[in-house]
């Protein structure tokens, strides 16, 4: 990327892909410089995405692998008393539980003798899938419903708005807990339900944006020319709502990740995949003796939510039309 395009010079021809990439780099650089918090959020997010993509490369161990060593003290037929004095005596192999962080296991091992580092690494996958997936569903769904609601005002709009009100009147966590219990708690279902629970906010945001755009002169002009509703929606309204869509997309991610962590913490999260919320819960029983699982998993949740929140805030600052040019 050696070529640097001066963004003040308006190109007379269509920009080549290289130039486009170059200008993207420049605006990225500008974004990082102008919004250092948002920039650091972006870095955090990118790091987590990289970690999730490369999980199998950097994991070092299989997250499900159970580490164990032979037990030299094994004794057959121990009495309850002997077991109470030395619980390990009854098993021919010892699970390497609660190992300290070190060379063998960077973050130590958990109660089950599994490598915490690889668990945390794989946990990023679930968080990202949940955060991004639910947000996509909420935005796409919100876009469709919001546009219908805004465009076909009247009874449809009224009904949709009341349903949105209904969803917002129930605490998000309760809503998610109810939804996710309806179906089997696979990752896909949990993502879907989180997205559905998030529809209320996105619908509301998008509806008000569409309403604004609808009243603008170019939409009126298009209508005068006789363009169809669908055409006006797709050609005129949609492109003018992109900023709002991006904002709606970015601000929800952190909340979905936290919601997933919360339901996992309560034991009602997605199954069959390492989850940070569930890890925080699992490590809590012996937090004072073996804090690592809880500390690392909780820290990871905090970092990824922080990253998305910072990025979302900065994006909004940049994209929000009311603040643009300030």
């Amino acid at each position: 990327m050696s070529q640097i395009v001066d963004p003040t010079v308006v190109p007379l021809r269509d920009p080549t892909p290289l130039e486009r990439a170059g200008s993207a780099m420049v605006s990225l650089g500008r974004f990082m410089k102008g919004k250092p918090l948002g920039g650091s959020g972006l870095v955090v997010v990118v790091v987590f995405i990289a970690v999730a993509l490369l999980a199998t490369v950097i994991q070092r161990h299989d997250p499900d692998e159970i580490f164990e060593t032979p037990n030299p003290d094994y004794k057959a037929n121990p009495s309850t008393l002997e077991l109470a004095r030395n619980p390990d005596i009854g098993s021919p192999v010892l699970v390497s539980q609660f190992e300290e962080p070190g060379g063998g296991h960077w973050f130590g091992t958990d109660k089950f003798g599994r490598d915490i580092w690889s668990q945390v690494i794989h946990g990023s996958r679930l968080s990202l899938i949940v955060g991004l997936g639910a947000s996509v569903i909420a935005v796409v769904g919100g876009l469709i419903i919001g546009m219908i609601s805004a465009y076909y005002a009247g009874i449809v709009d009224l009904l949709i708005q009341r349903i949105v009100d209904m969803l917002q009147a129930i605490p998000f966590l309760v809503l998610v807990l109810v939804f996710t219990q309806i179906t089997e708690r696979s990752v896909l279902n949990v993502v879907l339900w989180l997205g559905v629970a998030g529809l209320a906010i996105t619908t509301r945001l998008i509806r008000s944006a569409v309403l604004q755009v609808r009243e603008s002169e170019f939409v009126l002009a298009a209508r005068v020319v006789g363009a169809s509703d669908l055409r006006i929606m797709i050609r005129h309204v949609l492109p003018n709502c992109v900023a709002v869509l991006i904002i709606a997309f970015s601000i929800g991610i952190g909340a979905y990740i936290l919601a997933e962590a919360s339901i996992s913490f309560l034991g009602a999260g997605p199954q069959g995949i390492p989850s940070w919320g569930q890890m925080v819960q699992a490590g809590r029983g012996s937090l004072d003796l073996h804090p690592w699982q809880t500390v690392f998993a909780g820290g990871a949740i905090m970092m990824i939510v922080l990253g998305f929140n910072l990025l979302g805030d900065a994006l909004r600052d940049v994209l929000d039309p009311r603040l643009r040019g300030a």
Binding site: L37, G254, L258, A261, S262, F265, G277, V280, Q281, R284, L287, D288, T294, G298, I301, M302, M303, V305, L306, N309, L310, D313
Partner: peptide, 20 residues
């Protein structure tokens, strides 16, 4: 940054550590 950091921490996590 500090405020957002505090806001990003899951409540159950901070509460568990604080009570300990």
């Amino acid at each position: 940054g500090l405020a957002i950091l505090a806001l990003a921490a899951p409540v159950f996590w901070t509460a568990a550590i604080a009570s300990l």
